[in-house]
Design a binder for these strands. Structure first.
Lengths: 339, 339
DNA sequence: TTGAAAGCGGTACCAT
DNA sequence: ATGGTACCGCTTTCAA
């Protein structure tokens, strides 16, 4: 076996199941690869007869360009990274599915990662996403105080959603967590609530603008009581914990839940206590279609997740296309709904 | 952000701020690229002194290999594609988040696509996923009768979940839709139900093994009535439609919903009718944590979504690693739960 | 109007 | 023990 054969063999083995390449097309059509390339991309004039020939060869070989190779030459991969802090939760589910719809429309794909409220994992994801060559990133930081060095180098544009990191500058789309929390708390106070509980997520290392807003309003009204704040972890079941807390702090006029999944936990724990002996109002920071079917005294913030998704996506797209305007923080409006 | 920062930023972006390459490292260390490559991959012996030098240069330049270039040479991208038929729904949400956890553990990333029950989109997604160089695909077909030519070429291993296509051979993980539907229907019949409705999804072009199972059991019991089947679209609201159908077909002893989101619609439409004047049992093909908090006469199938995700992921991984065993259809068990 | 060839950032074979 | 270099598939000058 000649050396050439050996090489050929190796080549076959390595690309055993590979698709046809531009060279194949060029050979078949009897033109050069550059001509093929230009036919495909319309990057320069090609005589109609050659163009036709090339086109028909492309069809014959069912050729389609290798995006990886294109990307290596600096082109867009048409992929955007989505890095959220908790994919399990319904908020990010809705966000991701809204983004996915937009991606479909714009011929992008989504590289979806879950940092699971873990800064180490988050860091790893940012690195691999960057290395995999995404064109942009939609990002919900785990922690307000992490410094995202890789992102600061801005090899790629990104926008933040839902939460903001103190240190990394970018566009932000979401509600104004602080103000909304303040507003909500005030609303409850106006309804006559005095003892207002706040359930925050255990796992999250996020500072909690929501908590600050809550604190502010309580303090203004002179009803702040630290004992009314409880941390609940996202994963484990903490029914007993919550129930105990609730009993010990009784009477609790209202409970503010930092998101719909926490709200579920609270409802589940307090279940019969809510329907019968008490008049505690439950408030959730995001809602969920299932809320409609529930029988509890429930209030919630109606975050326009679709809108957030859309604005984030569009902002990112414009950045990808080179928009260099100063960064914007866009706070979307949302209503308190009474269920 | 100051104007100066913005300018600096723009400058960096324009310069394409490319990361350092292997050549940079090689130059700095005064060795050849092959040596650097071998140091990194441990693919051949390198003297300790050189190795150290290279390593420190790598650190100094914060070099990290370009995955795209690696992939071009035939290596794994460590990315797996996930193509589901409806990302909005809670079933696939749970599946994706379970897959995401596994991906995290195995240092893979997920390219998540939604075919939105649309075969055209599905085809497009399969093509781009393949072109983007995924190492494997987890796939829930939109339609049982589409022929997936690209997949048949097996450039990449894939496993099907939740639904199976007639024509493309691969591993399958999920429940046995036909048998479970049969079982469920029979259970309802044994409970004394005679008029059993079936709500199927409008958008789906899927044949519906579930429907067949339902049909079989009804027929066996001599209680089949075509008028008891209704199609409901996933997106639009069809409350009136459902309510009308329900009234017209009254009495309806049970309603089988093809998934939890359809079930939501049904519950929403029939709301007060269920709690008061009737004793209709609602059955859902997958459940959801919110079911616990509902007050309706509800039964559901407890699909072990985590398990399905895990088996799918592990199966795919083994295929990626070259496992060549005959394809398996794995039907997971699941219980009917009474809420 | 078209072709040749130099990259892009690696891997791996061939030498030495 | 290491260096040189062809090659992966494509884009993009530069020449002709």
């Amino acid at each position: 076996m000649s050396p050439n054969d050996q090489i050929e063999l190796r080549r076959m083995r390595r690309k055993k199941k590979s698709n046809s390449t531009m060279k194949d097309v060029a050979d078949l059509a009897g033109v050069s690869v550059s001509t093929v390339s230009h036919v495909i991309n319309g990057t320069r004039y090609v005589e109609d007869s050659t163009k036709d020939k090339v086109l028909s060869c492309i069809a014959e070989l069912k050729y389609s360009p290798n995006i990886i190779a294109q990307r290596l030459n600096g082109l867009n991969l048409k992929t955007i990274g989505v890095l959220v802090s908790n994919l399990q939760g319904s908020f990010f589910h809705r966000l991701v599915s809204s983004l996915s719809t937009l991606a479909n429309k714009n011929e992008y794909d989504l590289l979806v990662c879950d940092s699971a409220e873990n800064t180490e994992l988050e860091k790893r994801h940012i690195n691999t996403l960057l290395k995999k060559g995404i064109d942009g990133l939609i990002f919900a930081p785990v922690d307000h105080k992490t410094h995202y060095t890789e992102l600061d180098q801005r090899t790629v544009p990104f926008v933040q959603v839902d939460r903001v990191s103190d240190s990394c500058k970018s566009d932000y789309i979401g509600i104004n967590n602080y103000l909304q929390a303040q507003l909500i708390t005030r609303t409850l106070i106006e309804r006559g609530c005095r003892r207002i509980g706040f359930v925050r997520t255990e796992g999250s290392r996020y500072r909690g603008e929501r908590l600050s807003g809550y604190y502010q309003s309580c303090n203004d009204a002179g009803i702040y009581d630290e004992a009314l704040i409880i941390r609940v972890s996202t994963d484990s079941s903490n029914e007993k914990e919550i129930l105990e807390w609730y009993r010990k702090q009784s009477p609790v006029d209202a409970v503010i839940c930092s998101n719909a999944d926490i709200c579920y936990k609270v409802l589940h724990s307090l279940d019969r206590h809510l329907t019968t002996e008490s008049s505690t109002v439950i408030f959730s920071f995001d809602n969920n279609k299932w809320f409609d079917l529930l029988q509890f005294p429930l209030l919630s913030l109606d975050q326009p997740i679709e809108l957030i998704g859309r604005m984030a996506f569009e902002t990112l797209l414009s950045r990808i296309e080179g928009n260099d305007d100063p960064f914007k923080k866009i706070f979307v409006d949302c209503d308190i709904v009474n269920l």
